[in-house]
Each structure stands twice: as C-alpha cells, then as structure tokens.
C-alpha cells in the first residue's frame, strides 16, 4: 500500500526532478496570483485564480497531501470559483472595466502587502531542522484518504460537525440576505 506519491518518488531517485517540478509550480502560482490581482477584466482575474488553484493542487501533491489536492480541485476550482464567475456574470461588466482597477490608495496597499510578505519571508528563514521520520510501513500513508478520513471521524469529529453547522448557517444566511424583499 503506497499511495504516497512524494515518498515513492523520493525513494526512487526522482528527488531532483520533484524539486524542479516544485519550483515550476511555485513560480507559476506566484505569476498567476500577480496576474489575477492586476488584470482589468474581472473574468480574466477569476480565470487566473483558477490557474493558481490548479498549481497549488500540484504543490499539495508534492508535499504528500493527496486528499487535500483533490479537495482543492473539487471544492475550490470546481465549486467556489464557478460561483464567483456566476455572480460576476450578473454584473454590468463593461461598466466595471471602464473604471479604474485600483483605488487611489493603492500605493499604501501595495506597501502593506510587500512589507507583510517580506516580514513573513524573514520569519520563515529560521532553521526547521530535518523532516520528521515518516510513519511506519503498513499504516496509511500521510495525506491519503484513509488517514485523513480516520482522523476526521475520530479525533476531529466535533470540529467536523461544527464545520457542517457553519456551512448550514452560511446557506441560510445567504438566502436571507440575497432574497428579494416582498413589497408590502
């Protein structure tokens, strides 16, 4: 039982190739995030975010989070982004594109974002030490459906139920907010 793609590749001498793939995915996700934030057409922005989510899913695969990668594609790329596109189509897009993309305060926003990224980068330079030893052979691999499912329904059963309540509250709240008021 070896569904852990990253561990398999590391043991079969593909480690260098995997590193190159990781750096490609990282560069491509940064590029698509920048494009998503700066494009004038909102639909193009959302489509660049779609590219970002696919590349991040590839990174999840490389760090042995296979189930997370699947959820990323199904929920983020499949459901959330389609929802965004759907709402975007209801708006007056030509009018949106005619106005300025950024508010007049954009240098302040850019400075804040750059400062935050630089600080986080600086903070993440501390030595993390060697990676922990992988779990013993025979058990479910890290990030596999079996391992994640077992953890979700045992140790994390209560947070799991709370997440379902949050989603229910979000559904009801959305209907209440977006409903057309009846004229009385």
């Amino acid at each position: 039982m070896r569904p852990d793609f990253a561990a398999f590749a590391a043991s079969s001498g593909l480690a260098r190739t995997l590193e190159i793939v990781f750096y490609y995915l990282a560069a491509a996700s940064v590029a698509s995030a920048i494009l998503a934030v700066t494009r004038r057409n909102p639909v193009h922005s959302v489509l660049w975010v779609l590219a970002l989510f696919f590349h991040v899913a590839g990174i999840f695969l490389l760090v042995s989070a296979a189930f997370l990668a699947a959820v990323q594609i199904i929920v983020y790329a499949g459901a959330i982004l389609v929802f965004y596109l759907f709402v975007l189509m209801l708006l007056d897009l030509p009018r949106e594109q005619a106005g300025a993309r950024f508010g007049t305060h954009w240098p302040l926003g850019a400075a804040a974002g750059l400062m935050f990224a630089a600080l986080m980068w600086y903070a993440s330079q501390s030595d993390l030490g060697p990676p922990a030893a992988p779990p013993p052979e025979g058990g479910p691999a890290l990030g596999s459906l079996a391992a994640v499912g077992t953890a979700l329904f045992t140790e994390f059963a209560l947070p799991f139920e709370i997440a379902s309540l949050i989603l229910l509250a979000a559904i009801v709240g959305t209907i209440v907010i977006a409903r057309r008021r009846r004229e009385s």
Binding site: L108, A110, M120
Partner: peptide
Amino acid sequence: MVPAGACLVLSAVLFGIGLIGFLSR
C-alpha cells in the same frame, strides 16, 4: 524532496499578493 522552507516562502509571497489585491482593488 520539497523543502518545507520553500513552502513557507511561497506561502508568504502568495499571502502578500492576496493582501495587495484586497487592499487596492
């Protein structure tokens, strides 16, 4: 083998880009 430090740097850069977008769009 993907180094964990590279993941953290990527995460910091992506978060900064998202923050710029949130503050200036």
